[in-house]
Design a protein around this nucleic acid. Structure first.
Lengths: 226, 226
DNA sequence: TTGACATACAAACATATGTTCGTGTATACT
DNA sequence: AGTATACACGAACATATGTTTGTATGTCAA
C-alpha cells in the first residue's frame, strides 16, 4: 500500500485512457471498455491493475457500482487534461511555518511565491471558505499551548492573512509583551480585547489592543492521527 | 420538440440532483438513484423525464450504457455547477452520519452505496493514510462530549471501519452499558481497556472488554470555522 | 530445485442498471 | 360523452458490468 510505487506502462496507459474517456463522454469507462482499449484480455486483469492504481494513490473506486472510477491525481509525464475552472482541483496552500507559544509567527514576504516542494498541503475547497488560496497559508502547531483552543501538537491550521478581525472570529495573535503566540476567539471590548478559548473550561484573557497583533484569521484545522 | 419548454419542478429537481451528484462522486447517477432522491417511484418515470430533458436541450444521453448522462446546459435559476465528470483531484469519503454521546453509531450496511445530499466530503489524500476509500467513512460530531479528546461540535471525523485496535490508536467506541459513544486513545490492559483522552487534563476511563465495541479507527479530524 | 510473488488469462457468477409494457390517472379539447 | 395527450406507476425483462475463482506463467531469491 505504498504511495511511491512506480506505475507499469500498462497502468499508465489505463490511467490515460480513463482520463481521456471521461473528458470526452462525461462519465468514466467500464472495466471492459478499459480492457478493450488497452489490449487487456481479461476483466480481472483490469480490475487487478485498477486496484494497483488505487494503492498508488492515483485513483478512487466506488465498489460494486458501474463506472465507479475517479482519478484523483495527475498522471506522471502527461500534461494534465483540461479541467473545469470551478471546484475540480483541490487547492494547495503554502505551509509556511510553525506556530508555537513563545515564538512569533514570521511569514515570508510573499506567500504566493513560497517555493518549497513539500511545503504545500492539500485542502478541500470548502475549507478555504471562498478565500483566494494566495492569501491563505498554513502553519503546523508545535506544543500543547493551544490546547485551550482545542488545537494540539501536530495540527495544521489554515489561516487567511489579515491584521484585523471581527468579533467571534478565531484569530492567530502575537502578544509582544507576553512573548506569546495564541489562537483564540476574538472579541473587542470597551478598552481591551478579550481572547476567548474554544474550550469553555479555560478562562479568557484580556489584553490591551496595543499588545495584540493579529496575524490572521483561522479558517480551519486539520489533524491526522498516525 | 421545441427547445424552450418550461421544465417541471420535478425535472428541475432531477437536473440539480444529477449535477450535484456528478460533482461529488465523479460520475453520474443511475436512473434508480435519481428516482430515490427525487421521490419518483418508478424507473420508467425517471426515464420519461430524462428524455424530456434531452428534448429540452439540457441533457445528453448515451443509450443502453449505465450512467450515460451528461448535462450540457446550465440549470435555469441555479448557479452553474460542474457538468463534466472530470478528474476531480481529491478523494471523497462517505459522510454517513453523526456521532454524539448517548447514541450508538449506526452505519449503513454498505458505505459505498450511500447516496444523499451532503453525503460526501473531500479529504486530502494524505489524510486517508493509505486506506481504501471504500472502508473509510466520515461522521459529524454533535455536542461537546468529545471535548476531552480535543474534538468539538461540528468537527468532521474520518474513520476506518474496524472492530479491533492497536494500543495507542484513536478509536470510536460504543459502550453499551453506559449508552455512551466516545472517541479516545485505546490501550489494552491486564483485564480491562483503558480509554485515554487526548487532553491530559482529563482522566482516562476503564471499561470491561465486553463493554467496549470498537466501531472504527480515527484517521483524521477536520474542522472549519465560519 | 523449490517456493513465494507479481502478473496474466478465461470462464462463471452475481447484481446493478437501462428498457419495455400494460395500466391508471388527470386535464383539455371536440 | 368520447378522444387525445401528458404524466405517473409497478412489474417484468434484457443485458451491461463489477466480482470471484481456478489456473498458468514469468521472475527472483533461498
Amino acid at each position: 500500500m505504498k504511495e511511491f510505487k512506480k506505475l507499469s506502462r500498462r497502468q499508465q496507459n489505463m490511467l490515460r485512457f480513463m482520463s481521456e474517456y471521461t473528458g470526452k463522454r462525461g462519465f468514466p469507462p467500464t472495466i471492459r471498455e478499459i480492457g478493450e482499449r488497452c489490449d487487456i484480455a481479461s476483466t480481472s486483469v483490469v480490475n487487478y491493475n485498477l486496484n494497483k492504481l488505487v494503492d498508488a494513490g492515483y485513483l478512487q473506486r466506488s465498489g460494486k457500482v458501474s463506472r465507479g472510477l475517479r482519478i484523483i491525481r495527475d498522471i506522471p509525464g502527461v500534461a494534465p487534461l483540461p479541467r473545469l475552472a470551478t471546484n475540480s482541483n483541490s487547492p494547495r496552500v503554502a505551509l509556511v511555518g510553525r506556530i508555537a507559544a513563545g515564538e512569533p509567527i514570521s511569514l515570508p514576504e510573499d506567500i504566493a511565491h513560497h517555493i518549497d516542494e513539500d511545503d504545500y498541503v492539500a485542502v478541500p475547497q470548502e475549507f478555504l471558505q471562498g478565500f483566494d488560496e494566495n492569501e491563505v497559508f498554513a502553519l503546523t502547531v508545535r506544543g500543547d499551548s493551544m490546547i485551550d483552543s482545542m488545537i494540539q501538537d501536530g495540527d495544521i491550521v489554515i489561516l487567511r492573512q489579515q491584521s484585523t478581525a471581527d468579533n467571534g472570529e478565531m484569530v492567530a495573535a502575537w502578544l509582544p509583551e507576553d512573548s506569546e503566540t495564541t489562537l483564540k476567539h476574538f472579541y473587542r471590548e470597551a478598552d481591551s480585547i478579550r481572547l476567548q478559548p474554544a474550550n469553555t473550561a479555560y478562562d479568557p484573557i484580556f489584553v490591551h489592543p496595543a499588545n495584540c497583533q493579529i496575524k490572521g484569521k483561522v479558517l480551519s484545522v486539520m489533524r491526522s492521527y498516525g
